[in-house]
C-alpha cells in the first residue's frame, strides 16, 4: 500500500450560518417568546381577577398595611369624607365592599381606588373642591373603579410587569416587590380611557341619585383644566385621570341622554 497525500475536506465540522445572523435570530427569537409569555400572563391575570370575589379581596388586603405606605394623616375632614362615601355607597345596591376613606397629606389634588375598598383622598383635593357635589363626583368616580374591578385588574397587570422586570434584571439581582410597593406604584398610573369613561358614568349616576341633579359635578375638572392651561403645568389629578374638554362633553352627553337635570343647587361642604 502506498501513502498518497490528500487534502482534508474543508468545513465539515463548521456550520455555515453567519455568526451575526445567528446572534440576531437568537436575540430576537428569545425576546419575542418572552414578550409573548408576559402578554399571555397579563391577559390571563386580567381575566382571572374578574373571578376573585370582593370579600376575598378585602380579606387579602386587610393584611397589607397601606396606611403606612401612603402616610395617612389625621385630618379632621376624614370623618366627613367617610360620611359622604357611606351616603354615596348606599346608591350602589349590594356593594360588596366596606369602603374606607383615607386622607393622605399630599400637596397634589388627587384620589385613588385601592384594592380592598380603600379610597385615598389627598388633603390638597379637599382644599381645592368648593362644593360637596364636586367631591361626591370624584368619590363616585372612584366607586365606579371598584364596581368594574379596575383597581384589581391593574394590580394583577402591575404584578406581571414587576415580575417581568425582575426576571429580566434578575441577572443583576432584581427582586420582586411586595404588594404594598406595587400598590403605591399603582396610584401613579392611570387606567385606560374605556375604564375611566365607565367609572365616570357610574360616578355621575351616583351623584344624580344622591342629589337629584348633576349640577356642579364637573366644576372641579373645569377649574383644573383652566388652571393647567394658565399655569402650563400638569396638575397631578390630570396625570392619572383624563381631564380634557372631551371628558366634560361626554359627561354632559351622558347626563342629557339619561334625562338628568344639568343644573341644581350645590351643597355646602
Amino acid at each position: 500500500m502506498d501513502f498518497v497525500p490528500k487534502a482534508p475536506r474543508e468545513g465539515i465540522n463548521v456550520s455555515k450560518t453567519h455568526p451575526l445572523k445567528e446572534a440576531a435570530t437568537l436575540i430576537l427569537g428569545i425576546c419575542g417568546v418572552l414578550v409573548l409569555l408576559f402578554v399571555v400572563l397579563a391577559v390571563s391575570i386580567d381575566v382571572a381577577v374578574r373571578f376573585i370575589p370582593p370579600d376575598m379581596e378585602s380579606k387579602v388586603f386587610s393584611s397589607v398595611d397601606l396606611d403606612d405606605v401612603f402616610e395617612a394623616v389625621a385630618d379632621e375632614r376624614t370623618e366627613k369624607v367617610q360620611d359622604l362615601v357611606d351616603r354615596l355607597a348606599r346608591h350602589w345596591e349590594d356593594a360588596p365592599y366596606t369602603f374606607r376613606a383615607v386622607v393622605i397629606g399630599s400637596d397634589d389634588p388627587n384620589a385613588a381606588a385601592l384594592p380592598g375598598g380603600t379610597i385615598l383622598v389627598t388633603a390638597a383635593l379637599l382644599d381645592d373642591v368648593e362644593t360637596e357635589n364636586e367631591l361626591a363626583f370624584v368619590l363616585g368616580h372612584e366607586l365606579g373603579h371598584f364596581k368594574n374591578r379596575d383597581h384589581l385588574r391593574r394590580l394583577g397587570r402591575e404584578t406581571v410587569y414587576a415580575l417581568a422586570f425582575a426576571a429580566v434584571s434578575g441577572v443583576g439581582g432584581g427582586s420582586i416587590p411586595d404588594l404594598a410597593t406595587i400598590s403605591k406604584e399603582l396610584t401613579s398610573r392611570g387606567f385606560d380611557r374605556g375604564q375611566e369613561r365607565a367609572a365616570d358614568h357610574f360616578g355621575l349616576e351616583i351623584v344624580y341619585k344622591e342629589y337629584g341633579h348633576v349640577g356642579s359635578a364637573w366644576d372641579f375638572f373645569e377649574r383644573l383644566a383652566t388652571q393647567a392651561l394658565v399655569a402650563k403645568v400638569l396638575v397631578a389629578y390630570l396625570s392619572t385621570h383624563p381631564a380634557s374638554d372631551r371628558r366634560i362633553d361626554d359627561l354632559k352627553d351622558f347626563a342629557l341622554k339619561q334625562g338628568w337635570a344639568l343644573e341644581g343647587p350645590a351643597e355646602e361642604l
Binding site: S15, T17, P19, E22, A23, L26, I27, G29, I30
Partner: peptide, 14 residues
C-alpha cells in the same frame, strides 16, 4: 451566543 443556546438548546455553532 453559546449562553443564548444554553437557554433554548441546539448546536453551539459559535
Amino acid at each position: 451566543l453559546a449562553a443564548l443556546r444554553g437557554i433554548i438548546g441546539g448546536r453551539i455553532k459559535s
